[in-house]
Amino acid sequence: MDIETVKARAGPREFGRADDMPEEYREAATRMLQFHANSEIMGAYLEKPFIRQSPSVDRKLAFSAKVQDEIGHGQLLYRAAEALGVKTREEMLDELARGDGKFLNCFHYEMTDWAETPMIAFFVDGAAMKRQATLKQSSWTPYAHAMDKICFEEGFHVKHGEDIMRELATGSRKEQRLLQEAFDEWWPRILQFFGPTDDRSTHHDFAADVGLKTMTNDELRNQFLNAYVPKARKYGLEIPDEPRIRTDEDGEYYEVVEADLDWDEFFAIAKNEYPEGLDQIDGRATAREAVAWVRDSLTEADAGGPGATASAGGD
């Protein structure tokens, strides 16, 4: 199939494994899927310590299940990426370990306190939901299929995050203060979740033309703000004065003042050059290297490990 045909036919779930897709399409789709899968893995890495730090047995169970879900999402997305024939899963996981794999800006920051957990589990996951909902319309059918399951589970994650936030917001004064401090620190990063405004986003035009993206960064960010600023206020959080976010006369958000955000930091992160992010990449790489002997002992037919198929459908 040539690019012009792809553009003419581009629509939700239009292409799949049986189609002979042009290289430019396969590379663009691989880039998106790999980024998304990497983000699931690095998000899980960031949240993992809070399984141990959960302050109740139920919460510990929920946190363990969430981290497990993210790994499962990574697995699904790498599989959807592999179907494009550009890279194998092992190649993508190795790139991530080497610091060549890219992933979401928010997962490059350290998270040390319990009060920070809703910043990821509520706001970042909530932002991710906005983007992911549109990816159900991806022209690459395996991606869209993966999103059906992922969006379903993410719905629970956001509820889990909101519940942690509610508990802190209605807790002691100290808990409320810690929650606000975490919000102040994470809010600009959350605003940058959707990247720079469209005129600075290089990959958008092609991805939109071939149906891999259906909404712009700005549209998604505004949707997110319209839904989540009221939620933040509901839990008593004060929105920092800066970065400025602007509303139109109907009170709908339409703009973030870009000059108020630290784009040097953002682009350092995008190149995997931000120190905290590097620590996380390296920490995961060391852990991966330590179990390389196990992977080496597995045969190709059984590359996930014994019983892998039986366990993959676990809850």
């Binding site: 993992k48 697995q75 179990v291 597995l298 490990g305 892998a308 198929t309 366990s311 676990g314």
Partner: peptide, 17 residues
């Protein structure tokens, strides 16, 4: 749970979780 995210393969990670 210490093995979550750092098990040898994604499949073994899910199983031990």
């Amino acid at each position: 749970t210490e093995w979550q995210v750092v098990a040898p393969t994604l499949e073994s990670d899910l199983a031990l979780s």
